[in-house]
Design a protein around this nucleic acid. Structure first.
Lengths: 200, 200
DNA sequence: CAAAAATTTTAATCTAGATTAAAATAATGC
DNA sequence: GCATTATTTTAATCTAGATTAAAATTTTTG
């Protein structure tokens, strides 16, 4: 078999595990998925997982870290490529969703932060807050530069992020739907924010 | 102590239990909450819960049934009171959110349907589908009567319901925020759907 | 108030699933 | 191919938490 540097091999397997775990967690929740659920997907034994993560809590934590990283990447890219605040927000959403429903997914929904141990919980909460704040900032910039109609950025952000976070609850890997989602969702989520030339 | 008819007393307690359970489930998930978590909130023993529900699965099931009922009520009321499709959808959202963040809440998020036993799962899925379909129909009516701008009602419905479903993940009972949510959210979720007199 | 019914608790039992240690197997470098 | 390192499995252990039965307590009814 092709020789692969140890670290790479390890990282690949670790990565597969995180994706399998994310699938399970999204579907059945943290406590609802057993390590056997995860390992079975990979043709492994549950005990094998302990070679890659310290324990189950660590597994969720890593999933969340990865989710945060992917979200951050999407936002960075949106920031770079968009001109106006609107475009930046729009592109961020587009990229984030593309990742969630595409090959790099599934991405774990951070819906069980309370299950994490204190230090991890605090870290994820912090990262999560930063992400929300970043999005709100995009919106604020858009309002500033006139590309977004004035609104409560906190609540608007919550609404949009909620929609995005909920996607894995109803999307289960159908390719057609995936295309539909990433084609339509950014527009659906942002269309209320276009400043109107004339509205009574 | 004031004498209360047995059935009423039972129903009251049962109801308190469902609300306490919904709080826990929303926060920590199905498997993540122990019956002790629920009973502790009420000053009871975990064993006492078995007088009201057959088992833990039944408890979630009942929570979901109640959530479905409240959602249905809100939609009915929106249908009755609104004139146009837009108004009906808007009012439904308003009422539903009012319930979720108000005194009748918390309402359980139906995020762990897979944890239900088959028959319950099927029933909840059916009810849930019906609810989505009902909302999509409101949107379709709105498009029909010109109060809503043409759009993909399936995807738009998913987006809006996702926002709503996610609310309990970040709202934790603060009265000020509650007011803000139910004042602003309906507008935030629906503002993209107003037909525009003029848009390039 | 006393009997009957309703509600709750106490004290077990039982099980799934997390975790671990030691053994077995596979991959790699020389 | 051999020695070493990496990976996985087998086979225990251990524990939290669901569930239950019987006893205790509280409420209701006549």
């Amino acid at each position: 078999m092709a020789t692969i540097a140890a670290e790479t091999r390890f990282e690949i397997q670790r990565h597969r595990i995180l994706k399998a775990a994310a699938t399970c967690f999204n579907e059945k929740g943290f406590s609802g998925t057993s390590l056997k659920d995860v390992s079975r997907q990979l043709g492994l034994t549950d005990a094998a997982l302990y070679y890659y993560v310290k324990n189950k809590e660590e597994l969720v934590y890593q999933c969340y870290l990865r989710a945060a990283e992917l979200g951050r990447d999407a936002m960075d890219q949106g920031r770079i490529e968009g001109e106006t605040g609107f475009e930046q927000a729009f592109l961020y959403i587009r990229y984030h969703i593309e990742i969630m429903v595409g090959d790099r997914g599934p991405v774990a929904i951070m819906s069980e932060i309370p299950s994490l141990k204190r230090s991890h919980r605090n870290e994820i909460l912090e990262v999560s807050r930063r992400h929300s704040a970043g999005f709100e900032q995009l919106l604020a910039c858009g309002i500033e530069d006139g590309s977004i109609t004035p609104c409560d950025v906190r609540m608007t952000g919550n609404a949009i992020m909620g929609s995005i976070n909920w996607i894995p609850k109803w999307f289960h890997g159908n390719a057609g739907t995936a295309k539909q989602i990433h084609n339509e969702f950014p527009e659906i989520l942002m269309r209320g924010l276009r400043p109107n030339v004339a509205r009574k």
